[in-house]
């Protein structure tokens, strides 16, 4: 490796001092200006390709002094049409325009169709003159998506409102009621909005325990008039998009079901009683019948023979009834099992 000699270094230094170095030129702002212009051109390129609409408005007269390509293309104007125009003439409708606040507005397109935008204005000062920088974002597509979402949500809400089971969306642990449907309001006698102001525990009779997550339990709920309502409550967890976990209570009125169960239980009890009475009926008949047969034998008359025959016929019938009791036992078991 060769090391530059001291003289070579001195020569180079001398040439630099005499103004023959790489950067040593008479001060000129043109290269710097050119560099800035190149930067400006690059920035302008980016600005023109932005989806947002940019306007530079002179504060003194409200006229547009510059606008990016998106502003021209989305509004359908040429840049010559926009530059010099009053910005206010572009506004079809707007909320009160405030500096550094975002407002929604409709801008006038060249074809008179409105363009929905979200707009922000900021003050700026260039070369001693006041300007407003207006940035407008076309929200047409966003509004369309929002409408579709709203419609979808309304459909879903309609379904939820029309189901006969009550639905409560609540904070876990018996917290505040966040949403509900009409079935809950009808069952408990509250308005929809009154329910939204309550906590879950307000709907349960004193001493009731909240059902466990994932279980179905019959609970005593309280109507708005204080009367209890039996209800079958199923609790399931649901997770929102923001990772918030809530509980969904599905509530079914249990009044009718409990009434059917009561009637069935009473029918079973009556049937038990009837079968029991039926089972002892043979014995109650056979005892006097044996007495009749004995007495007939003591008579020793031809009629006595006929009495005995009739008594044996009655005994046969009682036997048949006994066999019928055995059949009844089978019926009762069937009823117990399936009803």
């Amino acid at each position: 490796m060769s090391v530059p000699s001291e003289r070579t270094y001195q020569d180079r230094l001398r040439e630099s001092i005499l103004g023959l170095g790489e950067h040593s030129t008479r001060k000129s702002h043109y290269p710097e200006l050119q560099r800035r212009l190149d930067e400006l051109e690059r920035f302008r390129f980016l600005l023109d390709r932005s989806n947002d609409l940019f306007f530079l408005v002179r504060a003194a007269d409200g006229r547009i002094v510059d606008a990016n390509a998106s502003a021209c293309s989305r509004l359908g104007y040429g840049s010559r049409d926009l530059v010099g125009a009053r910005f206010v003439d572009l506004l079809l409708e707007a909320e009160v325009l405030l500096i550094e606040q975002t407002v929604t507005a409709r801008l006038r397109r060249d074809d008179e169709e409105p363009l929905w935008v979200e707009m922000t204005m900021q003050r700026a000062r260039f070369s001693g003159e006041e300007y407003l920088v207006v940035v407008a974002r076309d929200v047409t597509e966003r509004n369309r998506i929002l409408e579709a979402l709203t419609e979808s949500e309304n459909r879903y809400r309609g379904v939820v409102q029309q189901v006969t089971d009550g639905i409560l969306i609540v904070e876990p642990g018996g917290g505040a009621i966040e949403d509900t449907n009409r079935a809950v309001a009808d069952l408990l006698g509250y308005s929809h909005f009154a329910l939204l102001g309550l906590h879950t525990m307000d709907l349960f009779a004193p001493g009731s325990r909240l059902p466990d997550e994932g279980s179905t339990t019959v609970c005593q709920l309280l109507r708005s008039d204080g009367n209890p309502v039996p209800a079958e409550v199923t609790v399931t967890p649901i997770t929102y998009g923001d990772d918030r976990v809530m509980h969904c209570f599905v509530i079914r009125d249990a009044t009718a079901r409990l009434e059917v169960e009561r009637v069935r239980r009473e029918a079973h009890e009556q049937l038990e009683q009837n079968i029991l009475q039926f089972a002892t009926l043979g014995d109650h008949i056979r005892n006097p019948l044996a007495v009749i047969v004995g007495l007939a034998d003591l008579l020793g008359t031809p009629d006595a023979e006929r009495i005995v025959q009739q008594a044996r016929e009655i005994d046969r019938i009682v036997d048949q009834l006994d066999r019928g009791w055995i059949e009844s036992e089978k019926v009762r078991s069937f009823l117990r099992r399936y009803y």
Partner: peptide, 11 residues
């Protein structure tokens, strides 16, 4: 040192 500046200052 010498010739170390590659950008002009303000006027």
């Amino acid at each position: 040192g010498v010739d170390r500046i590659d950008r002009p200052g303000p006027p």
